[in-house]
Amino acid sequence: MTRYAFLELTSCGDCLSELYMNPEINKLLEEGEIVYWPAYGIVGDPEEIGEVDVTFIAGTVRTRRDLEELEKFRRISRIVVAYGTCSIYGGLNGLTALLEPRAIADGEYVKLLMPTVKPVTDYIEPDILVPGCPPTREVMARLAKTLKKYISGGKPEKKIFLIPGEVLCKHCPRRPSNPEKAEMPGIRDPNEVVDDGRCFIEQGILCLGPVTANGCNHLCIRFNHPCMGCMGPARGVVDQGLNMIGSIGSILLKSREVKLLFPGLAKELDKLRDPMGYFYRYTLPKAMLTKLALRRRGVE
C-alpha cells in the first residue's frame, strides 16, 4: 500500500487540504494510506513512521522546526513533491524574507525562527515541483497522472517540473499583433484603467507576463487581471523583477522619450511606488537583491 505524508510548513496552510480534495488525487490517496498529517489528526514521530512513498510538502522554511521536519521527511521519503509556489519560490509568505526574527516574535520565541524565510528548494531536492498559488485543477490532474507512474516503485530520474516553462505572453489571448511595436504608455494603477481588452502593458498596467512561466492557462488574464507572477520565472528568466525592469526599460514611452527626456521619464517612473511589491509578490526570497540585503546582515 502506498504510504503518503503531508508536511505543512510555514504558510497560509491551505495548499495540501485543497490537494486532498481534488478527485483524482483523492482516488490515489484512498488506494493508499496517509501516515502523517497533523492538521487532520494523523500525528507521529517522523523517526518512527518508517519509509514513506510520497511526501507532499507545502509552505516555506521559517522556523527551525520547519527545517528539521523537512530534512527528516526528505530522508524517509521515496518521492518528495514540492507543492505550491511557497515551497518553490517563497510565494506570498516569502514577502517576509527581509524581516528579522526579532520583528516577528518576542522573547524566547525568537529562537524558534530561522534568520530569514526560504523555499523548500533551497534546502532539499524535491522530485516533483508543482507551482501555483494555488496550483490549478489541470496541474493537480497532471500531478495525479505523474504519481501513478511511480506508485509501485522507482522515482523520476530527474526533477519533474509540472508546468511548461515557456513565458506567459507567448500564447496570451491579449498578445499584441505586433509585439515588436508594443509600447507601454505610462505606469498606471490597474484600478484606474477602463480595460479595453488589449495587452495590459499596452494599457500601462504592470503585468508580469513577460517574465512569468505559463502554468495557469492565462487564468488571471482571462479574468481581466494582470499577471502577478505566481507561477514563478519563465525559462531563461534569471530574476523576475530585474528582468521585468529590463523589459520596462525597453518599452516604456519609447515613442516619446526624445521629447520627455530624463526628467519626463523620471516623473512617469515615480508612479511605480512599490516595485518590490509588484515584482516579487511570489518570489522575494529568490531575488538577487534579497541575497545581497541578507548578506549585509551577515545571514548569507
Binding site: 527581509l98 523583477g241 530585474l242 525592469i245 529590463g246 520596462i248 526599460g249 525597453s250 516604456l252 519609447k254 522619450e257 526624445v258 530624463f262 521619464l265 523620471a266 517612473l269 511605480l272 512599490d274 516595485p275 518590490m276 515584482f279 531575488a287 537583491l289 534579497t290 545581497l292 540585503a293 549585509r296
Partner: peptide, 18 residues
C-alpha cells in the same frame, strides 16, 4: 533612454531592499 529607465527603477527597488 533604456539605461536611464532601467537604472532609475533599479535604484528605487534597491532602496526598498535597504
Amino acid at each position: 533612454f533604456k539605461a536611464f529607465k532601467r537604472f532609475y527603477l533599479l535604484k528605487k527597488l534597491m532602496k526598498q531592499f535597504g
